[in-house]
Design a protein around this nucleic acid. Sequence first.
DNA 1: TACTTTTGCATCGTGAACGATATAAATTTG
DNA 2: CAAATTTATATCGTTCACGATGCAAAAGTA
Lengths: 153, 153
Amino acid sequence: MEYEQLKLDNQLCFRLYTAARLTIGAYHPYLDPLGITYPQYLVLLVLWEQDKQPVNDIAHKLFLETNTVTPLLQRMEKAGLVMRTKGKEDTRQRIVSLTKKGIEMREQAKHIPDCLSDEIIQITGEEEEFVRMIPSLDKLIAGLKQNNQQLNK
Amino acid sequence: MEYEQLKLDNQLCFRLYTAARLTIGAYHPYLDPLGITYPQYLVLLVLWEQDKQPVNDIAHKLFLETNTVTPLLQRMEKAGLVMRTKGKEDTRQRIVSLTKKGIEMREQAKHIPDCLSDEIIQITGEEEEFVRMIPSLDKLIAGLKQNNQQLNK
DNA sequence: TACTTTTGCATCGTGAACGATATAAATTTG
DNA sequence: CAAATTTATATCGTTCACGATGCAAAAGTA
């Protein structure tokens, strides 16, 4: 049993990785008609909560690097969902704001979380089990974020 | 509060997506010295459990599509970790087997799961909380797998 | 046996993710 | 105030992830 630990079955990360991919897959039927991807949907969620944010703030809220978010925003700009304007106080900043199309998409998207919740309930019989997971995931995310950052110093 | 549902904080998927990315990030210090990526590590886990498997079996165990796994295996072959030979009974199949280098890497990797467990314990104070998540994640994965498959029919 | 369908794998194109690096503007320091 | 440093964003290269498509071998069917 020397290599017992190396069994795929024993691994938490593999579960997270797979569950994330498959859950994102479950968004496809709802996001495809809108012509957006899941990461683009996340950017819209951030901007719907507060319009006109610099790239860095968006990246920070999504726990992503700016070199991931920049091309994402460029594609969203090309798709007519957002505009990127130079910052006024700090000209290094790019302020990202929603276009009319981006604002209007909120209405089309507002049912999506309910649809996903329903699907999870339908899969599992109960919702509670997954609501209970959320604080644990938040704790994990906060801890890993800190650990990974310390490595880069 | 019409759009309350859209708030990022309410989303399970975002947690899974972020936790998965950051956990994979936590593997970097252990995988970089071996010169492999996390998905490549997963392929090795599968092959260490059972050598000589067709592409399809590997993909299935990882819940990935073959068009993801094929290029992954091609890179691993170029790196000298695996060999891909034509199947004997079914010549359409490609049987993937470990090279000497791939077999030997098991010894170097065997401590990794313990290291990650320790890190999670250190982050959160206790392991139980995350062990408890595993059956829920498995239930979610199984359900989503079935749902997504039905969409492709 | 000829024909159709399915299966196993590969290729291509697009969109993330992210490390490394670049660049210009702001900030700090001497 | 000039020089060094930090910050905000962008660019580039590599590796996934996956839908769409292609192709040859196997399996099923008339």
